[in-house]
Structures are given as C-alpha cells and as structure tokens.
Amino acid sequence: MSHDTLAIIWFGLWGLIWAVYFMLDAYVLGTGMLFPFVAKSEREQRQLQDSIGPFWSGNEVWLITAGGATFAAFPLTYALMFSYLYTPLMFILFALFFRAAGLEFMHKDDSKNWKSFWKWGFFGGSLVLALLLGVAFANLFKGLPFDATGYHGSLLSLLNSYGLLGGLTFLSLFLLSGSVWMAVKTSGSVQERGARLANRVWMAAALLVTIFLVATNNKTHLFDNFVAHPVLWILPALSIVSILLVKLFLHKQKWITVFAFISATIVTLMATGFAGMFPNMLLSSLDPAQHVTLYQAAGSRLNLQLMLIVAVIFVPIVIFYQSWMYRFFREKISPENAQGYK
C-alpha cells in the first residue's frame, strides 16, 4: 500500500474511533447530567450508577485511544492540536476526573456534604465534557485561527456562535442518549422519568441538529466536498432521518431501537464533519493555504503499516469483548437489585 493510501485509511480509522467514543460516552455523560434531577433517593441513585458502572471506563478508553491514534498516526496534528487547544484540554482533564470520581466516590462516605459534593461533581464534570467536546469539534470543523506565525485564538475565541451551537448540539444528543439509556437499563420510576425526559429532550435535540447542519452550510466550508461529491449528502441526510426515526420509536416505546438511532445520529454527524474536513485535519480559519492535510500530518509509512496491523487485529477483539460485556450485563437494574459493587 502506498503511503497516501495508508494515511487515508488511518484518517478513516481515526474518525471511526472518535465516533465510537462519542456514541458510547454519550449515554454516560447524559446520565451524569441528568443524575441529580432524576434520582430522588439513594436507591435510585444506585440504580443509575449501576446502569453505567461496569461500562463507563471501557467507554472512556475509546477517548484515550482516539488521542493515542492521533499521536501515533498523525503526530503533527497531535502536536499542533495540543499546543493550540491546551487550555480547553486542561478543563477536559479536570472534568474527566470529576466525572469519574463523582460516579465512583459518591457513596464511599455517608456524610451529606460528601455525597452532595460528588453528586454535583459528577454532574459538573459530565456537563463540561459534553459542552467542551462539542465546542472543540465544532471549531475543528470550522477552522482554528492559526497561520504561518502561530495560533491567534484563546479559550474565549472558541466560544463563538458556531462553537457554542456545536456544544449545545452535543449536549442535547447526550441528554437524549442518557435518558433513553435509563429507559433501556432500569425499571420502576427511574425508567418512567427517563422515558418522559427522552420525549421532551428529543424536540430540542432534533431542532439543534437541524440548525447545526444549516449553520455548517453557512458558516463553514465543510460542504464544499459534498458539492463536489454529492453522494456524501447521504451522511447528513442519515443524521436527520435517524433523529426523526428516534421520535417514531419513542412513540412505540422500543427503547433499544431508539437508542440505536440516537447512536446513528451521533455517528453520522461526526462522519459528516470528518468527510467535510477531508483531506485536511486542521483547518485554518485565517489562511486556507495553512490547512494541515492528513498527508502532511501522517507518520512514517512503516509505522502506519505496523499500527494498521495492530488495529486490524485488536480493534475487532476489543469490539467483540466489549459487546460481550454489554450482553453479559443486559439485565435491567431494578430499585431492588441496585447495590453497586461490594
């Protein structure tokens, strides 16, 4: 395989790893953001914790793998992205800790302040992650203010209207995913609340996804590729169709199908962004000549080749045992059998 072909394959793989991460962490982050409002008692809190407890760390490794794949396959992208975006990344790091610690440490002590602190830590960490990841990716789609002399942005410049719209879109999709997860994985009043919430959040999510796609057309150059290759329009079209199908199956209360279509919405939305960026990995909002292409950013041929072998062997294995784990823990968590690990 030529170096360019390998680089393109890796770009696809890179996008796939990110998409899988967002698909999987969506319901965990959503549960975190809804946690203080849905769970009314300690039993119900435990129910929600158990519904994500065995899964969340395996999901988070997809994020680490996404970082690792960027580092390994596209070292230049990694180096530039981390130096340009280091302040938001710092917040993401804090948020990752508070999310994990909130979930895991909340019931390690009976003091009221302790529980309340970590309940809100879980909530805050999840909220910041959902919002910032959305803002970051919207800005990657739109382009970052850098040119030949360096980076000219700040944390505030990321919070532009399109960036914020991206953040809110992610946020609403994650809330939707989280509330449907409750309907899938729990029983009793938590499930009822999740189901009710899902119906309400759906409206916001569908609206935001649509506005986000329209704004992408108006504010970014992502759809230039789509004009050149109209077959790509299938990706945003699938996003819209999926989010509409979510509503249909919400009515029928087919929770697993609903969850599948939310995941499809997230994945096709990410795919839309990545297809629009191709063959660039870092877009400059100041000077298109400064875009960093995947060919420039790619690591050496031998490296890409070896890592492709590693990925081809291990990614399916990971997917296999992770899916097996979901099957293994397929039982609904009722208020009675929720007790955390002992």
Partner: peptide
Amino acid sequence: ALPLFMETFAFFFEAIF
C-alpha cells in the same frame, strides 16, 4: 508511536475486565 498505540489496547483489556 507504536508502543504508545499498543498501550491503549492494554488499557481496554484492563478497564473492561
């Protein structure tokens, strides 16, 4: 790059199990 990338698969193994 190669060992660091392979390390992420070790994380998967550890975290999921």
